[in-house]
């Protein structure tokens, strides 16, 4: 109790460290709606500048690449339209950046998208930085929540969950690094810890379906992991970006032609020497409480190419 001019009033108990919820449900719904409208407008005109006001990081590079390919190749565009939000995962943060995840069905699609909205500073806008697509039947699982209703999220810098518990700081990064190594080389150390998911199968098929007369090499690396969510059953969701590089060396008296492929937007003529194609893939990895980790969603594409 303290005294205010002789009047006893209740003493405030302000916590020294108190997180701020990343966003309220109503605000998130409003943001998703704004994103949806602006994204449809950008998709209709294939305007990369408009896109840059909505997205950032690898996602912007993927979608900007898609715009470029559609424009160069005269491909039909299908605007990304979000349907109702089925899940909101928002943690509580003691400092910026803030981030949250919404899961939305996609209109006229059998997919849903898990979009990570990030606000880097208090004066920056909310931008979508990751958006892996999931099959409509895929369920993310229920995030574990604190007493204030905020999701328990991981800070890879401190190695601390938002409820104060700690784990090995690099556990999520190590998993994604191992996953990338396994994509490069199925026999890499740590490859056996992962389940054979559809993303790996798809990438293996692509790597094997290469034309004759070229030497092909594919390499994968993991970008820095920033967004990790703990599930109520003890599982973990990891959002990650993978850097994929396809390297072609054309054998003598052969040529390499990407006609009718997205890469032809960058390399329209047959090549005689070599080519390098740069991709980004954003994946959502589920680390179940029991069982092997697997990728349950992805969104990726070609972001650039060079060759001669």
């Amino acid at each position: 109790m303290v005294s205010a001019a002789g009047c006893s009033v209740v003493d405030r108990d302000v916590p020294e460290t108190a997180g701020k919820p990343a966003i309220r449900a109503a605000e998130a719904a409003s943001l998703v709606e704004q994103y949806d409208i602006a994204r449809s407008r950008a998709d209709a005109s294939l305007d990369a500048d408009q896109l840059a006001e909505l997205e950032a990081g690898a996602l912007l590079r993927i979608d900007r690449g898609l715009y470029f390919q559609q424009r160069e190749l005269g491909l039909a565009t299908t605007p990304v339209q979000l349907d109702q939000t089925t899940s909101l995962i928002a943690g509580s943060f003691e400092e910026y950046p803030l981030w949250f995840v919404t899961v939305n069905k996609l209109v006229d699609s059998q997919e849903q998208v898990a979009a990570v909205f990030v606000r880097r500073t208090s004066t920056a806008p909310w931008l979508v930085t990751e958006a892996p697509r999931l099959a409509q039947s895929t369920e993310l699982g229920r995030p574990e929540v604190a007493s204030d209703g905020s999701a328990i999220v991981f800070d890879p810098v401190t190695g601390r969950w938002s409820d104060g518990t700690t784990v090995e700081r690099g556990f999520a990064q190590q998993l994604i690094d191992d996953y990338a190594a396994m994509l490069t080389d199925p026999g890499a150390p740590g490859a056996e810890q992962f389940a054979a998911d559809s993303f790996v199968e798809q990438m293996r098929q692509l790597a094997q379906a290469q034309p004759g007369g070229v030497d092909f090499r594919q390499q994968w690396q993991a970008d820095t992991v920033r967004h990790v969510v703990r599930l109520s059953d003890g599982g973990v969701l990891i959002f990650a970006t993978l850097v994929r590089t396809d390297q072609y060396t054309v054998q003598p008296r052969s040529s390499l032609d990407f006609a009718e492929l997205p890469a032809s937007a960058y390399l329209p003529k047959p090549l005689r020497a070599s080519a390098r194609l740069d991709y980004r893939h954003q994946v959502l990895m589920l680390v179940p409480s029991s069982g092997k980790p697997l990728v349950i969603g992805q969104h990726g594409g070609l972001i650039g190419a060079a060759g001669s």
């Binding site: 701020k20 400092e95 208090s122």
Partner: peptide, 23 residues
């Protein structure tokens, strides 16, 4: 919220009122 204000004004010169007593 203090998280927003600290990010917005942290590192800039300003005056902080540490305690307020009435009157």
């Amino acid at each position: 919220h203090v998280v927003d204000a600290e990010d917005y004004l942290g590192g800039s010169p300003h005056t902080r009122i540490d305690t307020v007593s009435i009157p």
